[in-house]
Design a protein around this nucleic acid. Structure first.
Lengths: 169, 169
DNA sequence: AATATCTTTCAATTTATTTTGAAAGTTCAG
DNA sequence: CTGAACTTTCAAAATAAATTGAAAGATATT
């Protein structure tokens, strides 16, 4: 398989997978393109290679920069901006995990915590108990999940590999 | 706060959060409703309480049963079906993790594995190297991630808590 | 300060996803 | 077998999300 075919396959698959991950297709495609490209690319090159509009390219490059997955570069003598993706997979995974934690875990923590503190009134005791128990369990669970994810976000690869993987067998 | 308000708040928040998780709003709302209800509910009751259509209720109940989060019950003498959600949070989390793994990790594994085996041809050596390195790293990473998730799916709460949490501090 | 080059914005459009509800299907009691 | 009670299906409608592209905004160059 030649390089261009392979790249295309990767970019397309990554784009589709991204949507399963709650990341939009274009964003993941741009990320994929930059991941497999040895040099930084301009917005122009990106829109040409992926066949997408200027606005779309711009918006998603910014999203990728917000996530910390892509950075801007300036080439001497060149007017335009160039973009490249961080190539360290653990770093990338940590950053994605961080963003997902913000969106997926923290809001649960917030709501559940709030409800957990409330005093619930009503006449159906069985229902109140079930409610309280559910919220309490959820609260405990979320706190644990959150702290595990935190550890991963702060970990370095070696630590994570050694500690976790060796124990997890 | 009275029980109905609290339930409503939980159901609505859970519904919104679900969408961040790639689960549709109705599906998470039904799940939330069943989680905080002490007795099993009929489709009729669910559609009334959530103000959603019959079709929508049916489809999402089936999705929840596919995920293993909800089960059908029959009450003696009653013709209709009743639904209840498993109340064990770790079990619930494991099941959700399993479904997400199928959608989010396994497809990556598949594509990356495939690309990893390919021989890439072309004239730009630097580009080929970058491509191969990216895919290789991604492959290694995904395999590790996958195996950690597998451990979680198979774990019981105590094991996970003791082993992981104590080490992760 | 005029012009050329590049980036950003955003209303309108397109595409994708979810929801509805009526009709068809199923099951069971009499 | 018939009809009432319930469940499932699915095309059409509604809603939500992503994308476009032209216009406005920057910024550097002469």
């Amino acid at each position: 398989m030649n390089l261009d075919e392979a790249k295309l396959k990767f970019i397309n698959s990554w784009g589709t997978l991204g949507s399963q991950w709650g990341i939009n297709r274009t964003m993941s495609q741009i990320h994929a393109l930059l991941l497999v490209s040895s040099k930084a690319l301009s917005a122009e090159e990106i829109m040409e290679q992926l066949g997408i509009s200027r606005g779309n390219t711009n918006m998603n490059l910014h999203a990728l920069m917000d996530w910390g997955l892509v950075s801007k570069e300036f080439k001497p003598g060149e007017r335009k901006e160039f973009f490249s993706a961080g190539k360290d997979m653990w770093e990338t995974a940590r950053k994605i995990t961080y963003e997902r934690k913000k969106r997926e875990i923290e809001p649960i923590l917030q709501v559940v915590n709030e409800l957990n503190k409330e005093t619930i009134t009503g006449d159906n005791n069985e229902e109140i108990e079930t409610f309280k128990k559910t919220i309490e369990d959820l609260n405990k669970f979320t706190i644990k999940a959150n702290s595990i994810v935190d550890k991963f976000i702060k970990s370095d690869e070696n630590w994570f590999y050694k500690t976790l993987m060796s124990i997890l067998k």
